[in-house]
Design a protein around this nucleic acid. Structure first.
Length: 235
DNA sequence: CGGAATGAAAT
DNA sequence: ATTTCATTCCG
């Protein structure tokens, strides 16, 4: 059969992978950067499986992730961006030609564990922070489904027209309520991202078609931590 | 992506 | 003063 990872997208294949992913997903929270995977489960995955799970997790991290075996003797692997592994005093060695492996700096350097690396589909974006919604946007968001349910077949543009009129007729109290909400959201955002700054782009450089790069075989051994190749967006 | 509404923030 | 974009989602 296929010695290499020719991604056979068979139903059964992804079904069990989805099961694994669902399991792992329980770990996910806004602060989680690295997933923990039991060794037994890890060994259940082939190259395609690892790529599949990594791809899923990258939707959260928005950056390149890699698998690393726990160097402390625990039978488990971690999945996360390389920077997290070195941040904890770890070291990633990459012998020429061979797969890179990772060790912890805390004494037990006896075991050099190998790792599998997955490159991101989209070269690690700096995670763009969405603009905070203004009062009207919040108002529309709230009533969007209401209006939609009341008017079968209505288009979003029509919903905007209706709610635009409704908004302008709304009482000061209501408008004020949404205004405060939007400001609270803005404050929370700035608290979470002190560096955030609205950066509108020129319409000329507006989002080209979402570069959907279906990397058939995303397993490539290539992780340079020293000089993280910050490949820019499309050419 | 454009569009349809409003408003905040950048240019 | 003008333009982007945040929300929503069909064409």
């Amino acid at each position: 059969m296929d010695l290499y990872q020719s991604p056979s997208h068979s139903k059964e294949h992804t079904v069990y992978l989805d099961a694994i992913w669902n399991q792992l997903q329980e770990q996910i929270n806004p602060f989680l950067r690295v997933l923990c995977i039991n060794g037994s489960i890890y060994r259940l995955m082939d190259d395609f499986g690892k790529w599949y799970i990594a791809k899923k997790f990258m939707e959260f991290t928005r950056e390149a992730v890699m698998f690393c075996r726990d160097g402390t003797g625990q039978d488990r692997h971690y999945l996360g961006a390389p920077r997290h592994f070195i941040a904890n005093g770890g070291i990633v060695h990459s012998p020429d030609g061979l797969e890179p492996f990772w060790t912890m700096d805390n004494g037990s350097n006896a075991h050099l564990e190998t790792t599998t690396v997955c490159q991101p589909l989209a070269p690690s974006k700096p995670a763009k922070i969405p603009r905070p919604p203004n009062a009207y946007i919040l108002y529309r968001k709230d009533r969007h489904n209401i209006v939609k349910a009341a008017n079968p077949g209505i288009t979003n543009n029509e919903i905007s027209q209706i709610l635009g009129r409704a908004w302008n007729k709304e009482s000061r109290e209501v408008r004020q309520k949404y205004k405060e909400m939007s400001e609270a959201i803005k404050v929370a955002l700035l608290e979470k991202h002190p560096d955030y700054q609205y950066k509108p782009r020129k319409s000329s450089e507006k989002r080209r078609r979402t570069r959907r790069i279906h990397q058939t075989q995303g397993i490539s051994v290539e992780v340079d931590l020293a000089a993280s190749s910050a490949t820019n967006t499309m050419a």
